[in-house]
Amino acid sequence: MKNFMKLAQVDVTPLMLAIRRRPELWQEDTFLRHYPQGPFGETESIMLRFPKIADFSRDKTGRKMEKYKQNLLPGYDQHESEDKPAFKVLTEARPIVFALMGSVQGERLGRVMINKIVPGGRIFPHADTPVHAEYYSRFHVVLQSQPGVIFRCDDEQVYMATGEVWWFNNKLEHEVINNSADDRIHMIVDIRTSR
């Protein structure tokens, strides 16, 4: 396979138990799901690390609303991600993330998010933003998956089992279809590595 590489097997049980104890975390950030014309309309996400792009304002009734936009101020580093509150709550994610950084000799940690696709759901075909995909390598830590989940990248597809860690080429068009009877949950970790 040229677009996927299985790297390791890790124990994801502590992290999955922590997620199950905090189901409200799935509702705290809807950026990906509500991204205009984005491929993630059928996913729920827990953002652990993500760029600072939220702008808060109030609607006519005075309710706080989030408007998402890229910060284009001078000196803004589009590759910088910040810890989100969920990263402090789900401390069980940290050893997995930092062990992965060590094993691939990572130089910079980018986005870290946990994505869930319900049975019958999907992430629609897309390729990640070229400037981001060129800068970071994309890794998937499979927290929960069952046979029937299809992960396609270009002309290849793979089934990633629970506990496996994979690299994949997110520069090319890819999609995920959950044809299983259970939620498909992956932790996505972007790491800058020497090429």
Rank of each mutant, 00 (worst) to 15 (best):
Q9G: 07
E44M: 11
P51L: 02
V158R: 15
V12G: 05
Q9M: 13
P147F: 01
H140A: 09
H140P: 01
K2C: 05
H126K: 05
D128I: 01
I191S: 03
P23G: 05
E82G: 10
A93G: 08
L109Y: 02
E66Q: 13
G148L: 01
E82T: 12
F31G: 00
E173V: 13
P36N: 07
A54V: 12
R21N: 11
N178S: 02
Y35M: 15
T162L: 07
G75P: 02
S137T: 12
G102D: 11
C153V: 14
W26G: 03
E28G: 07
N169L: 04
L172P: 00
M101A: 02
S145F: 04
V12R: 08
N115M: 13
T162M: 10
R108H: 10
R63E: 12
V189E: 03
P74S: 07
K116M: 11
I188V: 13
R195Y: 08
G110Q: 04
T91H: 08
L7W: 03
D11H: 04
K2G: 12
S137E: 14
A86Q: 07
L17M: 10
V97M: 00
G62W: 06
F124D: 12
N71Y: 12
M113Q: 13
R49N: 12
K88G: 15
E44K: 14
P74M: 05
E44L: 13
F56V: 10
I117V: 15
W166D: 01
W166A: 03
E92R: 03
H186G: 03
G75E: 08
G120S: 03
I46Q: 09
N71E: 13
Q9V: 12
S145D: 11
E134C: 11
L109V: 03
V158I: 14
P119M: 02
Y159S: 10
L25N: 07
E175T: 09
W166T: 04
D29P: 00
K64F: 03
R63P: 00
Q37E: 14
D190N: 11
E28R: 15
H140Y: 09
K67H: 14
P95N: 05
V189P: 05
E175P: 01
G38H: 02
F124R: 14
P74I: 05
S81N: 11
D190C: 02
D128L: 00
T129C: 08
A8Y: 10
Q144W: 05
V176R: 08
P130C: 06
F168G: 05
R152S: 04
G163D: 08
G121L: 06
F40K: 06
Y159F: 15
K60P: 00
V112K: 08
V141T: 12
E80I: 05
S81D: 09
P23H: 06
R184Y: 10
A181Y: 10
M5H: 12
